[in-house]
Design a protein around this nucleic acid. Structure first.
Ligand SMILES: [Zn+2]
Ligand SMILES: [Zn+2]
Ligand SMILES: [Zn+2]
Ligand SMILES: [Zn+2]
Lengths: 137, 137
DNA sequence: AATTGGATGTAATGTTATTACGTTAGGAGG
DNA sequence: CCTCCTAACGTAATAACATTACATCCAATT
């Protein structure tokens, strides 16, 4: 059983913004959407994002400089461990698909073991066009 | 046989800066190092990087917002096709190891095929600590 | 009450990337 | 030679993303 975590007000607001969005949001977009809730400065967003990422509730998309709520079903503050996670990002509609592949994880871990490299974070991002957008084109 | 490509002066300078560096460089660091060669503005660097990346001579490290010369041995302007390339980036010493794994490539391509996703670019980056730094610690 | 640590508020600054606009160099074709 | 076209270049301004610095607040502990 994974422990439920108490989120602070700012963390809840940022997580909520990401969960209600239809795609990844930049920190500054989140800031804009939370102005009415009292947000004033980027740091309020970045601090919350740091914690949410640490808790595994939010992922940062490096190739986009943006953030998404974790796609795995879980209640607020109730996370679960990820293996290596991959993202397929549609450059046309912005949709993001989060997935994970044990064989990929195992090969990358194997490479790291052989190289004596200790990985603390691994990023896998596919940029391209999703099935829906390809069909529409 | 892959065609040799003529690089422009700016492209050669930027590629040279990356090849002589001992690690990834940000666009602005490249700019600073090329001041004496007449560089004045970020765009000069970004334009050269765009082309070099397109030619496969340079890779962008998304998690670092920085660039490295391709590790594969090739003469200036003489590139070769990559499959999906992965990078192991040491957060301690900055060293970058470029590698490629057919099984990883095949699994990711397989996922994309099944999902109907057409990937135009795939990023794999391991952040952590290299063998040398782990031994030194 | 004093101390501690985490979270917060705010301003200033630093870093990375792009837009806009004008100029230059070189090849293709008349 | 001259015009058209295209790719590359030069420069300035601005936009977008992220961090540093410093003060304050508050709850838990001693
Ligand atoms: Zn997730
Ligand atoms: Zn799409
Ligand atoms: Zn390469
Ligand atoms: Zn190292």
């Amino acid at each position: 059983m994974t422990a439920t975590r108490d989120l602070t007000r700012n963390q809840s607001l940022v997580l909520g913004a990401l969960e209600h969005a239809d795609g990844p949001l930049s920190a500054y977009t989140i800031l804009d959407r939370l102005r009415d809730a009292g947000f004033r400065a980027p740091l309020q967003v970045y601090r919350a994002l740091d914690k949410l990422t640490e808790f595994g509730l939010v992922h940062r998309l490096e190739s986009l400089n943006a953030f998404v709520a974790c796609a795995h079903g879980h209640d607020h503050g109730h996370a679960h461990a990820h293996g290596i996670v991959a993202f397929a990002i549609c450059d046309t509609c912005g949709k993001v698909d989060e997935f994970s592949d044990d064989e990929v994880t195992s090969r990358l871990n194997g490479w790291a073991r052989d190289a004596g490299f200790r990985a603390s974070k691994t990023t896998i991002e596919l940029r391209g066009e999703c099935a829906g957008c390809l069909a529409a084109a």
